[in-house]
Computed example of a mutant assay.
Amino acid sequence: MPPSQATTRLCALTRTEKPVTDLIRFVLGPDGVLVPDTEARAEGRGVWITLSHAAVAEAASKKVFARSLKTEVRLPEDLAGLTRLRLEQRFASSLAMARKAGQLATGAGKVKAAIESGELLALITATDAAEDGRNKMAQALRALHYAAEEAGEAAFTVPHLELLSSDQLGLALGLENVIHAALMTGAAARSALDKGLRLTRYNA
């Protein structure tokens, strides 16, 4: 079982204790090569590093993993890049699950309808989206915020995730030319959002 969100671990790089939601775990594979354990489920002793591309790259360059595991460690050529790829794959898979559960809409028209419905959990835009299309969706999102304020409702922020290209989104969802998507309310969508936010933090 993965650790609960309340669990804390020591970052092997900074030597500070942090919640596991702020960290990413690494383990040795059967071949002795270090790999990111993005689900924090792998057997064996793990090394926890702050959830950041820069932190993982620094830990690799300073031989933090070998010191922590007290054994010889073989690192991939670009551990930080591999970690980003694994987080992207995890996010993409979760989007596919959300779509299967009926909690993800694609296409400009359906996404705008999702925004207007008030059931939007997160807005997703491809990283290679045209600027005008990106702006139109952002404007629709802002209009929703303004409407809530004018109605005297509590302020809220809907995350706008730009993490995957249109090709990556299309491959994950089994569709062509995916530029805009909307995560709706539901457990599968919430899981996808959580993974998207982790990837966002890693890229920051």
Results as ranks from 00 to 15, higher is better:
Ser165Asp: 00
Ser61Ile: 00
Ala80Glu: 07
Leu163His: 05
Lys112Phe: 10
His180Phe: 15
Arg90Phe: 05
Asp167Cys: 06
Gly44Val: 06
Met184Trp: 09
Lys62Arg: 08
Leu34Gly: 00
Met137Ile: 15
Trp48Met: 08
Leu120Glu: 03
Ala54Leu: 11
Leu123Asn: 09
Leu28Ala: 08
Asn177Arg: 12
Ser61Thr: 02
Leu82Asp: 15
Asp37Cys: 00
Val111Phe: 06
Ser166Met: 07
Asp78Gly: 05
Arg25Leu: 03
Leu141Met: 14
Ala154Gly: 10
Pro76Asn: 07
Ser165Leu: 09
Glu77Met: 05
Ser93Leu: 13
Cys11Met: 09
Glu58Met: 06
Gly102Glu: 02
Asp167Ile: 10
Ala172His: 12
Leu169Gln: 04
Phe91Val: 05
Thr21Pro: 13
Pro19Cys: 03
Ala155Ile: 11
Arg15Met: 10
Ala172Ile: 04
Gln139Asp: 14
Ala42Ile: 02
Glu176Tyr: 07
Ser191Thr: 13
Val111Gln: 08
Val56Gly: 11
Glu58Trp: 00
Lys195His: 04
Ala147Thr: 15
Arg45Trp: 00
Gly170Tyr: 06
Asp167Pro: 04
Thr50Ala: 11
Pro159His: 08
Ala108Tyr: 11
Ala138Trp: 00
Val47Thr: 11
Leu87Gly: 02
Gly186Thr: 12
Leu197Arg: 08
His53Met: 09
Leu121Ser: 04
Ser166Pro: 00
Leu120Gly: 03
Ala155Thr: 13
Glu17Thr: 09
Thr16Met: 08
Glu150Ile: 14
Glu149Arg: 11
Ala151Asp: 03
Ala12His: 07
Ala80Met: 04
Lys70Phe: 03
Lys62Phe: 09
Ala96His: 15
Gly32Ala: 10
Thr185Arg: 15
Gly196Trp: 01
Leu82Tyr: 02
Leu171Tyr: 11
Lys136Ile: 08
Leu121Ala: 07
Thr71Lys: 15
Arg198Asn: 11
Lys100Gln: 15
Ala101Gln: 05
Thr21Lys: 09
Pro19Asn: 04
Leu161Phe: 01
Ala6Asn: 14
Ala55Gln: 13
Gln168Gly: 11
Leu175Thr: 10
Ser191Ile: 14
Lys62Trp: 03
Ala204Ser: 15
Thr127Ala: 12
Ala151Arg: 14
Glu72Ile: 12
Ser166Gln: 05
Ser166Asp: 07
Lys63Met: 02
Ala154Lys: 07
Asp128Tyr: 10
Gly44Ala: 02
Cys11Tyr: 06
Gln5Met: 12
Thr83Val: 13
Phe156Asp: 06
Lys70Ala: 14
Ala96Gly: 09
Ser191Trp: 05
Val73Gln: 10
Asp128Ala: 02
Thr125His: 07
Val47Cys: 01
Ala6Ser: 15
Arg74Asp: 07
Val111Arg: 02
Ala188Thr: 09
Pro2Asp: 06
Leu193Pro: 01
Val73Lys: 05
Ser166Glu: 08
Gly29Leu: 06
Ala181Ile: 12
Gly109Arg: 05
Val20Leu: 05
Glu149Gly: 06
Ser117Gly: 15
Leu28Thr: 04
Val158Phe: 01
Ile49Tyr: 08
Gln5Trp: 05
Lys110Phe: 00
Met1Phe: 04
Glu58Asn: 02
Leu141Lys: 14
